[in-house]
Amino acid sequence: MLNYVWISLLLIGIFTAVGRDIHDEVTNPYRNGVPITAHFETTQQPTSLHPIYKGTIVISAATFDQFYNVTSATDIRQSATITTLASGQLKIELPMGDETPQFWKEMAKAAGGKDKLEGTVSSFITETGALNFTLERVSFVKIKAVTKAAIEYADVAVTISLGLIGVMALWLGIMKVGEAAGLLELLTKALLPITKRLFPDVPPNHPAVGMMIMNVAANMLGLNNAATPLGLKAMEELNKINPKIGTATNAMCTFLVINTAGLTLIPATAIAIRAGLGSADPGIIIGTSIFGAGCATVAGLIAVKVLQRLPGYKKALEPDEAEVKNG
């Protein structure tokens, strides 16, 4: 199933991006090639040293909204510079600032992540300030965003993985000591009545059980830094009793679902953000979150136990014929 979900994410993403960009090409929401009329208030006349006009573009809210089919609250006042190029053509530059309308900011971003929008001036009467200008083309916004995301996220994945090295090493070290001292065995024996029902395929004294208990305990307490290394160690132990390397066992799937359901006694991140936003009672969601995650855990456990009996999933665990012959 992961195969199909994965390829669907990619295909849906790319097709949607292409579709939206074609739609944009047809409807032209960024008004490529269409000049807009504005009033230019000159604050600095060109001198022989600096042949540029500095000033402010004024466009009434009504004009701007009609032109771009958006709604803005106030008239647009945007600082700008007009430069005379060697060819005699006038070039206009709008630096993105606090006063810039949101729509132009988005256009500047889509035009290549720059902090300014450029355009060409079709007419400019210096005496009255009447100005007509056309902004640069903005196209293939979503395709560009998709390209950028693909590369950025690949980078993020490496950052996250390498960021795990330190905590992984720390917890693997501590667990190794706990194992050598027989502490995990004690823990495993104490919780045997629960674990033997959840993981019937795992031998009751196997070190994997102790690791899984530690992982669940860390998750409950919201100790994410400890939970992941402990969980990965548990996976490693579970993999030692995996009859078919590269395929998930029933115990692995059960353990994974317990983790994805994310049952925790204190949803610390959500509470911190609530407090930061001035909630009168940030902790009010503790009970509701335990209920929600409890529903997720129970539903996930039922699902995992039912699904593992389906013929297709059962068959995936059987050794391949080729392996049987070789083995």
Partner: peptide, 24 residues
């Protein structure tokens, strides 16, 4: 979790995980 032990065939883990999410 599966990546750390080289699991490529995740079997029913994803559907079960998504059912858990839905009920959550």
């Amino acid at each position: 979790y599966f990546g750390s032990v080289g699991i490529k065939n995740t079997r029913h883990a994803l559907p079960a995980g998504l059912i858990a999410d839905l009920f959550g």
